[in-house]
């Protein structure tokens, strides 16, 4: 008896999330809050990580790069999973908005992947003694992740018709998601120059609390920052996809006035 209204409520929420005007307004309302919260967290986390956290016993101050490298790498992988799930939903349920989410995640994910590679290289020089090592599985598969993001965007560009681009690029996004667990486990499956995972490992994080707290703050700050930009990009994407609808044209007139 109770299950039916519960289920219908869930379906209504699902359908609302498929409604462009609803999501456009939701994103517009969320964006400023996410923006302010992420900037505060990033400022606090960066100050804590650069000034208050102690230096590492072995690496000294170069370890402070962890506070931007790890969140970038985590977003590069989390972003890809989000993109693949959204593209998959869009493909199966023919939900244009879900494809729109995947389209908006791609450039953000690609930028954070590039950041993870660059900050990792800068960190590698004073610790390993090299910026880059061809042949290290962790580095190779993270680079492959960047190519997957770029491939997704380039593949879309090769289609004139948006719906066809949605369908074909969604399959690439779903196929590429297999790379994400490979990146995570690469340091355990093979011998690598890159060290093992510090946070997500058996026995808990292998970093002391005074170094861990700013890292968690930065992870939260980067995540909210990603959400903020995703909201703004999604708004733009919805306007482009729905430009022929009455509600978008009314909105344009209102914005001009």
């Amino acid at each position: 008896m109770n299950a039916v209204p519960m289920r219908s409520r869930l379906w209504r929420a699902f359908h609302q999330l498929g409604s462009p005007p609803y999501v456009y307004r939701l994103a517009g309302r969320l964006a400023p809050w996410l923006g302010v919260a992420s900037c505060v967290l990033l400022a606090v986390g960066a100050f804590w990580g650069l000034v208050l956290a102690p230096p590492d016993y072995l690496q000294g101050n170069s370890f402070r790069i962890i506070y931007i490298h790890v969140p970038s790498a985590y977003l590069s992988m989390g972003g890809y999973v989000l993109m693949a799930v959204a593209a998959g939903i869009g493909y199966i349920w023919r939900m244009k908005l879900a494809h729109g989410v995947a389209v908006c995640v791609a450039p953000l994910g690609a930028w954070f992947t590039a950041l993870a590679l660059v900050t990792g290289g800068i960190w590698g020089k004073p610790t390993w003694g090299t910026y880059w090592e061809w042949g290290d599985a962790r580095l190779m598969f993270e680079l492959l992740l960047l190519f997957l993001y770029i491939g997704y965007m380039v593949l879309r560009m090769s289609f004139d018709e948006r719906e066809k681009a949605d369908r074909v690029s969604a399959l690439l996004a779903v196929v590429g998601v297999v790379n994400v667990p490979i990146i995570h486990y690469s340091v355990e499956w093979w011998t690598t120059l890159h060290q093992g995972p510090t946070l997500i490992r058996e026995g808990g994080p292998s970093i002391t609390m005074d170094m861990l707290i700013p890292l968690l703050i930065m992870l939260a700050g980067f995540s909210l920052f990603f959400g903020w930009l995703l909201c703004k990009r999604l708004q733009g994407e919805i306007l482009r996809r729905e430009r022929r609808t009455r509600w978008v044209q009314n909105l344009a007139v209102e914005a001009a006035a």
Binding site: P55, Y57, L58, Q59, G129, Q195, T208, M211
Partner: peptide, 17 residues
Amino acid sequence: EILAKHDENYMPPEIAE
């Protein structure tokens, strides 16, 4: 060529001591 490999443990110098 010699490269250094460090592990996944991070701690302040006092704790390492």
